[in-house]
Amino acid sequence: MIVSFFGSYARDVGGWIGVSDLIALMSGLDVDGPAVRSAVSRLKRRGLLTSERLGGVAGYRLSDQGRRILAEGDQRIFGHRVARVQDGWVLVVFSVPESERHRRHALRTQLTRLGFGTTAAGVWIAPAHLTEQARAVLRDLGLEEHAELFHASYLDFRDLTASVARWWDLPELQAMYEGFLDEHEPVAAAWRRRGARALRSPEERATAFADHLRAVDAWRRMPFLDPGLPPELLPDRWAGSRAARVFFELHALLHGPGLEHVRAAATLGPDDSWR
C-alpha cells in the first residue's frame, strides 16, 4: 500500500512526505501507525526511500532507484498493452549451470513477473512486445552468455489457443481478475451513480483517495502476471478486459480528487518546499 501511495501520489507532490502526514493518510485506509512505520523502514532498507527532514519535519523521499522502479512500473501498469497474434512471440531459451542456480532461480522469478509462460524446461514465451524487458532482465542478471532470444511465429500442429492454455495458467488469471471485479466493480458503479458533484466535499475526496489507492494497490501486480495475451486466444467471457475497464474508470475519476485530498491533508508549515 505504501509503494502504491508513493507511485500514485507522492511523485505528484515532490516525492517527499512527512511521517505523521503519511500515517494520517493511511489511517483512512485502516492502516495503523506502526504498520506504516514498519513498511517505510523496509522500503528504506531496500533503497526505495531515503530519510529527509524538511522544515524540521521528519519524512521520507523517493530515492533515485525508487523513482526509476516506479517509472518502469508505470509503463506496465498504465500502458496495459494487448498483443496481436500477427506480432509474434519472444522466446527466451536458457541453460544456466548448476553452479549458478541462484541466478537461474532469479531469472525464472523475473520472467514470471514479466508474465512469461513456459513451453518446456528452459524455454519461456511471451508476446513479442516484452522483448526489451526480457533483454533487460538477462543483462541485469549477467546471463547473456547463458541465454538466447528469438522472435517467433507459431507453426505447430496444435491449435494455438490450446497451446496458450498450456503455457499459462489461465484459470488462475481469470480468478485473479474476478476477485478484482468483485471488490472494485461495485465501487466504480457507486461513483458513476454519484457523479462528479459528489467529489466536491473534503469527506468525499478522502473517500475517493481511499477507493483509488485500494484499486491501484490491487491492480498494479496484475499486468505483471498477465502479459496481455491476444484476446482471440483467451476463453470466452475473459474477465481481464472488464477488470481493465473498471480500473481505468476508477483511476480517471478518482485520482484527481484523491490528489486534492493529499495536498490538503499533508501540510508542513513555512518550509513546505515539497509542494
Rank of each mutant, 00 (worst) to 15 (best):
D64E: 15
E148F: 09
A136R: 13
I23D: 15
P231K: 08
A190S: 14
L259H: 13
G14R: 12
W191C: 02
R139M: 09
L149A: 07
V123L: 15
S20V: 05
S99E: 15
G115P: 03
V123P: 08
A10T: 00
H251K: 05
A24R: 15
A252S: 15
V82G: 02
S241V: 07
R135D: 13
D236M: 08
S8T: 02
V36P: 07
F247K: 04
F209L: 04
V19E: 13
A121P: 02
S63M: 02
A71D: 14
G66V: 00
A266M: 05
T207S: 13
V57L: 11
A152K: 10
A134T: 02
V92N: 04
F157T: 12
G142V: 04
R205P: 01
D236W: 06
E72K: 06
L268C: 09
L250A: 09
Y177H: 11
E100R: 15
A266E: 09
A128D: 08
L234A: 11
F6K: 05
D211Q: 03
P202F: 10
L141Y: 10
S4H: 00
E72C: 02
R139T: 15
D32N: 14
I125H: 08
L111F: 07
R108E: 11
H261Q: 06
D140R: 12
D30H: 08
A198R: 02
H184Y: 04
A152W: 10
L49P: 15
D32C: 06
F180H: 04
W219G: 00
F224N: 08
L149H: 10
L91V: 08
A264Q: 14
S51P: 15
F224I: 01
Q110M: 14
P202Q: 10
L141R: 09
E52D: 10
G14Y: 13
P270K: 09
D21C: 08
G66T: 00
W167Y: 05
V123M: 14
D211T: 00
Q133H: 11
H255E: 15
S41A: 12
L160Y: 10
A266V: 01
A35Y: 01
V3L: 13
V36I: 09
R192W: 09
P34T: 04
R113H: 06
L54A: 10
F5C: 13
D30Q: 11
F209D: 05
D74T: 03
W191L: 00
E72G: 13
A252T: 06
A264G: 14
P202H: 06
M176L: 15
L114S: 04
A188V: 02
P223E: 00
A196Q: 13
L130A: 03
A266W: 08
